[in-house]
Design a protein around this nucleic acid. Structure first.
Length: 866
DNA sequence: ATCAAGACTTGGTACGATCTCG
DNA sequence: CGAGATCGTACCAAGTCTTGAT
């Protein structure tokens, strides 16, 4: 585990010693909102970092064995402990002794403080085994704990409320509004029956748009605006051809990937900046850089971007060549060596969190006191199991519920507060310090270009916070050390120095068929990996993003044919075929995820292929009511009218099964995707989500944008974005202050209306030559001309209108997350082209990160349509 | 055909930074 | 200028999908 022994409590600050290179980030402390929830996160993170080092020893489980034994093992590195930390409370005092304990295993000891049930005396007795120092530290806290003991488990009782609300149940928690987004889709016309509708005409329209709102749910009705139904001529589908063929698009030039081979030709084009006007200045410079970069890359590499088919072939050759010198002889399954991702790669490895962990495991838990995580039994049980193991069988602490974590929690809050109180300068200094230490890790060099690294910080120890009812949540996530980390780097690049002296990387590879710079096994699930990748702004990621959208765009050409095909199969005699057809229909129409199988040690969530009989209810005459937990345990609740054959098929699939049986018993994602691939090269289930999201945006923008001022256009964009978020069921929890904010706005509007009334009275009087009435304070108002008053009235009215609109939007979006679709599903070229056409500055839609991430899309032609 | 490893995309949240309004 | 609202980002969990092995 993570924590290890450290003896000292000091948290904060400093400890000097250590060789570690990094310092901890400062501990952060921010009090701010203490909301329960918020805090928890932060807390955790911090916990790990505060102290400095200490030796961590090893226990295999991560826990420090030494601690367990009661002995202390001095770590080599660890210096003498510093003083107890900051925590006023307990630590210092009690421990006079402890401070010194250095590297010992105080962790355990520390933990003990907190808890405890037994009376102090007991503690002492037991603690013998512990180092003395440790014990002492604990004492104070123990006292408290004791009290609690008497009461019962304190932690559970404290603030339940908060916790309860937060977490988990994000989905429909409260009001009606919280209803599932999907359910909010407007009823639109009933959906189409696909069978009946002419494909060619409808393709552009996402099937989704037809979804009907769930009658039962209370959602906001009005809002759901209908999705666009208009179709655009261009879109015709050419049903005849093979979908995999690329269709020449008007603005194909923008799709550079495809044309890469022709780069010579294109290059000039790319350089021309005629579109620059649309590009923010800041971007322009970047753009140049990136352009040149891109071309370089192209030359060198055989373009990864080129059509996939070619790519594969080419790459294959190259790969084999390269693999010769590649160290790793055996290729792991995931490495498709057909794809060379880079030729040269240099970077500096990863940075580790500061080693010393003052408070240890108990702190990790204490800090989450008011989150809803600790309200869950699974969380507590898992935590206790790991903590107990860590403490050792004979430790005084024998029961989690008997421990009072309040002292640690308070100490933590106090630290946060302190930090918050630091002067701006101090904060700045700290920030710079951190930056200085991390700078070298932030950049990599790929094929000669400098690229930003995404997550170069190794995850600190902490408690696993699985979402929903995750069976492993609460488990201790042990510390990751260099010997857990595998580095991937160019063969000729210098191997990054291991940041922790005396230790070394687990392995160094030179695999240019993958994009990761480093990885380690997930401590919670050894079978899984945590990777360090380049940032989204990198050219490698950009290319892959572009390919993703190009593929979705290709679906535009095939969608008609695909819909016709699955519609035909709704009534196939072959059940397997029928299941594929219905599943594809749901994925297309409702933007459901594929639904891979999951293990028992994961939260129980489903996607299309894993839907259970009980997740879908047939409602005569032909509606289906969906209700299930999807990714991240976000609830999907939606009732839609479907075509009769689909309705019948679903009932057939359900017949004779129990609620927990698979609805599509003959189907899984690999079969489904294999089938989809026959329809279009590279087609998989998730492409439909991208396609439907992007086509919806394109349609709404083109249908609803009118000449008007900027803010009106932005409203249109936001509206389109919202529709997409609803289709994809991208939800967020309602902000804690939402209702307060709403009532504040209501008040303001009322006040303005009062003003309005007064103005009107004054206007009447002014017209009659009378002076205005006195104001509320009894003071005489200025004498205004009727014209001036009218102007004021108009202004006030406009203000009220705007506020009302803001309020409506706010209410409307309180459970909708717009960001996810913007980042992952909406082809940025649609947005960029629309901005160009309507003179909307792109930075009004994309923030700095998105501009960087989508730099590849900036030079799209204004007439680009998805 | 199935399985599992591996690689990479997608997703929500908390927090700190920045903006806004009184 | 300060409190609260909003924005932007770090973080890391949880999906999808591919591929080689059996």
């Amino acid at each position: 585990m993570a924590v290890q022994s450290s003896t000292k409590l000091n948290l904060c600050e400093d400890e000097d010693d250590e060789p570690l290179v990094f310092k901890r980030y400062s501990t952060k402390s921010k009090p701010n909102q203490l909301n329960a929830e918020a805090k928890k996160l932060s807390a955790e993170r911090q916990v790990g970092q505060p102290g400095k080092q200490v030796s961590e020893q090893r226990s295999s489980n991560g826990l420090n064995s030494s601690v367990q034994n009661g002995k202390m093992v001095p770590s080599t590195k660890s210096p003498p402990a510093k003083s107890p930390l900051a925590s006023p409370k307990a630590s210092t005092s009690s421990a006079g002794a402890s401070p010194v304990s250095n590297s010992k295993a105080s962790t355990s000891s520390r933990a003990s403080p907190v808890s405890k049930a037994p009376p102090l005396t007991t503690l002492n007795g037991q603690s013998k085994r512990l180092s003395e120092q440790n014990k002492s530290t604990t004492i104070k806290e123990e006292i408290n704990s004791i009290e609690h003991l008497a009461q019962g488990n304190s932690d559970s009782e404290d603030e339940k409320p908060i916790g309860a609300r937060l977490g988990k149940v994000k989905p429909s928690e409260d009001s009606d509004d919280d209803k599932p987004l999907s359910s909010r889709i407007a009823p639109k016309s009933k959906l189409g029956t696909s069978g009946s509708r002419p494909y060619d005409s409808n393709e552009r329209k996402p099937v989704v748009s037809k979804v009907q709102k769930n009658g039962s749910s209370t959602m906001d009705k009005g809002k759901a605006s209908s999705v666009v139904s208009s179709k655009r001529p261009l879109d015709k589908v050419n049903s005849s051809e093979n979908c995999s063929a690329k269709r020449p698009k008007v603005s194909d030039s923008s799709t550079s990937a495809k044309n890469k081979q022709v780069s010579a030709k294109q290059e000039p084009k790319e350089e021309d900046d005629d579109d620059d006007d649309f590009i923010p200045i800041s971007q322009r410079s970047k753009k140049v850089a990136s352009d040149s970069k891109t071309s370089l890359t192209k030359l060198k590499v055989t373009k990864v971007g080129s059509s996939s088919i070619k790519k594969t072939i080419k790459k294959g050759q190259k790969a084999s060549k390269i693999s010769k010198y590649s160290k790793s002889t055996t290729k792991p399954p995931g490495s498709n060596d057909g794809q060379i991702k880079w030729i040269t790669l240099k970077h500096n490895g990863v940075i580790f969190p500061p080693p010393y962990n003052p408070h240890g495991v108990a702190t990790m838990y204490a800090v989450m006191k008011d989150t809803d995580y600790v309200q869950k039994e699974t969380f507590r049980i898992n935590f206790w199991a790991d903590w107990h193991k860590f403490l050792g069988k004979n430790h005084v602490i024998q029961k989690l519920d008997a421990c009072d974590f309040t002292p640690i929690y308070d100490w933590y809050q106090n630290e946060k507060e302190k930090k918050k109180q630091m002067s701006t300068e101090e904060k700045k200094a700290l920030k710079e310090e951190k930056l200085k230490q991390e700078e070298k890790y932030m950049w990599a060099e790929v094929d000669g270009d400098k690229e930003k690294v995404g997550n170069f910080r190794v995850e600190p120890p902490g408690l696993f916070r699985g979402r929903g009812e995750h069976p492993k949540s609460g488990k201790l996530k042990r510390r990751i050390r260099p010997s857990d980390v595998t580095i991937n780097i160019g063969k000729d690049a210098p191997i990054p120095e291991c940041p922790i002296p005396g230790e070394s990387w687990k392995e160094v590879r030179h695999d240019n068929t993958v994009t990761w710079l480093a990885f380690w096994n997930d401590p919670i699930n050894q079978k899984e990996f945590k990777y360090v990748f380049l940032a989204p702004s990198s050219s490698l990621k950009g290319k892959s993003d572009e390919l993703k959208y190009d593929k979705a765009r290709r679906l535009t050409d095939c969608i008609g044919k695909i819909r016709a095909s699955y519609t035909k199969d709704f009534t196939s005699k072959d059940v397997s075929k029928r299941q594929i057809a219905v599943a594809t229909y749901l994925i297309d129409k409702l933007a459901l995820r594929a639904g891979n199988e999951k293990d028992d040690d994961e939260a129980d969530t489903v996607g299309c292929c894993t839907l259970k009989v009980e997740n879908v209810k047939a409602i005569p005459p032909n509606s289906l009511e969906f209700n299930f937990l999807g990714k991240d345990s976000i609830r999907y609740e939606n009732t839609v009218e479907v075509e009769i054959p689909v309705y019948k098929a679903i009932m057939q699939f359900q017949s004779g099964k129990s609620g927990s049986d698979d609805l599509f018993d003959l189907l899984d994602t690999s079969r489904l995707n294999a089938h989809l691939k026959e329809k279009m090269d590279g087609l998989t289930a998730k492409v439909f989500r991208t396609y439907n999201a992007s086509i919806t945006l394109d349609n709404i923008l083109n249908k609803e944008t009118k000449d008007g001022d900027l803010s009106e256009k932005l409203v249109v964009y936001q509206h389109a974005n919202k529709e997409v978020a609803i289709i994809c069921n991208h939800q967020r929890t309602v902000s804690k202050s939402h209702s307060a904010q709403m009532s504040k706005l209501t008040e303001k509007i009322a006040e303005l209306q009062g003003n309005l009334k007064e103005l009107k009275v004054d206007l009447d009087r002014a017209k009659k030559g009378k002076p205005p009435l006195k104001d509320a304070d009894g003071k005489q108002k200025k004498n205004l001309t009727p014209e001036a008053l009218e102007r004021k009235i108009a202004q006030t009215n406009a203000k009220i209108e705007k506020m009302e609109l803001d309020m409506r939007i706010k209410e409307d979006l309180k459970t909708v997350a717009l960001g996810t679709s913007k980042i992952n599903y909406l082809d940025p070229r649609i947005t960029v082209a629309w901005c160009k056409r309507h003179e909307v500055p792109i930075e009004k839609i994309f923030n700095k990160s998105l501009l960087a991430k989508f730099s590849w899309a900036m030079r799209v032609e204004p007439d680009f349509r998805f």
